[in-house]
Write a protein that binds this DNA or RNA. Structure first.
Length: 475
RNA sequence: GGGACUGUGGGGUAGCUUGGUCCAUCCUUCGGGGUUCGGGACUCCGAGACGCCAGUUCAAAUCUGGCCAGUCCCA
């Protein structure tokens, strides 16, 4: 293990060092914001995809895939949307040496690719709801500093797009997406808070946006994903209409749900520690690494037993790495800890003779496993590990919020702040200036901290319409 | 959008101010041999770099310009 910067005091440097140490990406690709996925990193990403696919399909959503290029003429149809993305799209203006009649954009997101086709697919109320998703790469010309997984120009993007009969049904789809997200977050052992963004910070073209945020130390927050209700904002310009049961023609109400590889970054940021990366078992490239401990006296017994352990656990359905390379065992321990493997199984000569092995999880919990119950004991070691990192993340999450009662208190915030807000934009901006960050919005459901609702807005002191809001510094 | 800074083997660095001591330092890494192996082994042999393109100069890692890449600060 190389010495990592301190996670608490030098979070960004620590994050970059952990990403490097974890061996999941190669940042040397010579285009800003475009990173290479290594074999190890790609395993993590594929596992993330698997979780997303499982949970979204459980809610009745089907996979589709739309093209990467969108004609400028379609892209321009929804005015707010184009305004939001105009500055950060890549343009394709030539085919070979020939200038194109209609320029094409590399999708920054797929509304404008999908919706002209949705208009053809949706004819009757019988076609609704229509829930489809795709996992594709999208492109945004970020001008700010890019960071591996967190701010990139080529985004590995999960996007669900749905068409519903009316506003209320679309609202139910938003709720369904939030429940599906809850399952995904549980699989990744990630805590989060769902926050309805203020008007000035919602998705371009949305009626409202619910963002999924997690605090990452200090007042910093990381947005993990978002769910949007579009009402008829896109169905009108794109003409997505259906014939209702009563014979009338209506526009669909739409929703979208977006996630990305940023979840890999979030997992590294939230679970990682002073020793390196920590992967929850569902995302872990390998759930178990098996390390034989050679000994001249014992011949090939440790090696043979390690192979047996790896084979049995693989047949049991686990992702297993047998590390029988030439390094010394201690060097292997450090390596696999740095890259975040949940459970290591050590096979020594004395133990192998007694038909036991030692399991050590990434949090340091050690146990002896009898080989005749290897599969069951390994499963429970993995389950205990996931519970341990989830509990640790939850504890840090709860400690990441504090109440604020005045604008002054916001200035030196060392946590995300929970405060009373009247809902006026003017007050929101004052709050943002005070904290040097953003008014994240109003929590959906219970706020992180239990406290009596304040009677006055932290900015203007008004009493009408005061509700809980959260403010922080998005990274 | 405005400004500042940085770029040396695969990774991290010394050298740059004051051009020559540099066919470039050290750590790590990688390949091969041997002895080892219950928490980063030792040893021997070997591999690997001045971002790119111009310019100044007898001489450029070092100075100048452009480009590319990256970082930070401000709007």
């Amino acid at each position: 293990m190389v010495d990592l910067p301190d996670k608490k005091t030098d979070f960004i440097d620590w994050y970059l060092a952990v990403v490097e140490a974890a061996g999941v990406t190669d940042k040397r690709y010579p285009v800003k914001g475009m990173n290479v996925w290594t074999p190890y990193g790609f395993r993590a990403r594929r596992n993330l995809d698997r979780i997303m696919i499982r949970e979204i399909e459980a809610t009745g959503s089907d996979a589709v895939e739309f093209p990467t290029l969108i004609p400028e003429t379609e892209f321009q149809k929804e005015k707010e949307h184009i305004k939001g993305f105009d500055a950060e799209v890549y343009w394709v203006t030539k085919g070979g040496a020939t200038s194109l009649d209609v320029n094409l954009v590399l999708r920054p997101t797929s509304e404008t690719a999908m919706y002209p086709i949705f208009a053809l697919w949706v004819r009757s109320h019988q076609d609704l709801p229509m829930n489809v998703y795709q996992i594709v790469n999208t492109f945004r010309y970020e001008t700010k500093t890019t960071r591996p997984f967190i701010r990139v120009r080529e985004i590995h993007f999960f996007e669900e797009h749905t068409c519903q009969v009316d506003e209320a049904t679309a609202g139910e789809r938003v709720a369904s997406n939030l429940r599906a997200w809850g399952q995904m977050a549980a699989a990744l052992a990630l805590p989060y808070v769902a926050i309805r963004r203020p008007e000035w910070d919602k998705f371009a073209g949305a009626f409202y946006t619910v963002a999924l945020d997690v605090p990452v130390g200090g007042a910093r927050t990381l947005q993990l994903g978002s769910v949007h209700h579009y009402r008829e904002n896109f169905s009108r310009p794109y003409g997505i209409q259906y014939e209702a049961a009563d014979g009338s023609t209506r526009y669909v109400h739409q929703t979208t749900f977006g996630l990305s590889e940023r979840l890999v970054g979030a997992v590294l940021a939230i679970h990682g520690d002073a020793k390196g990366a920590v992967f929850p078992r569902e995302m872990a490239p390998y759930e178990v690494v098996v390390v034989p401990i050679p000994s001249a006296a014992a011949g090939d017994l440790p090696q043979r037993t390690a192979t047996e352990v790896a084979d049995r656990l693989t047949r049991h359905g686990l992702r297993v790495k047998l590390d029988d390379g030439p390094d010394r065992p201690g060097a292997k321990y450090y390596h696999w800890e740095t890259v975040g493997v949940p459970v290591r199984i050590e096979v020594g000569a004395r133990e192998a003779a007694a038909r036991t092995v030692t399991a050590v999880d990434r949090t340091g919990t050690k146990s002896t496993l009898a080989l005749d119950q290897l599969e069951a004991l390994t499963d429970s070691a993995l389950a205990n590990f996931d519970r341990a990192i989830s509990d640790r993340a939850q504890r840090e999450f709860r400690a990441s919020f504090s109440l604020a009662h005045t604008l002054d208190e916001l200035r030196d915030s060392t946590t995300v702040r929970q405060l009373g807000w009247c809902g006026q934009e003017e007050c929101g901006h004052q709050i943002e200036t005070a904290i040097g960050g953003a008014l994240l919005g109003t929590p959906e459901g219970d706020p992180p901290l239990e406290a009596p609702l304040p009677s006055a807005c932290v900015a203007c002191g008004r009493h009408d319409g005061v509700r809980w809001a959260l403010a922080g510094r998005p990274m």
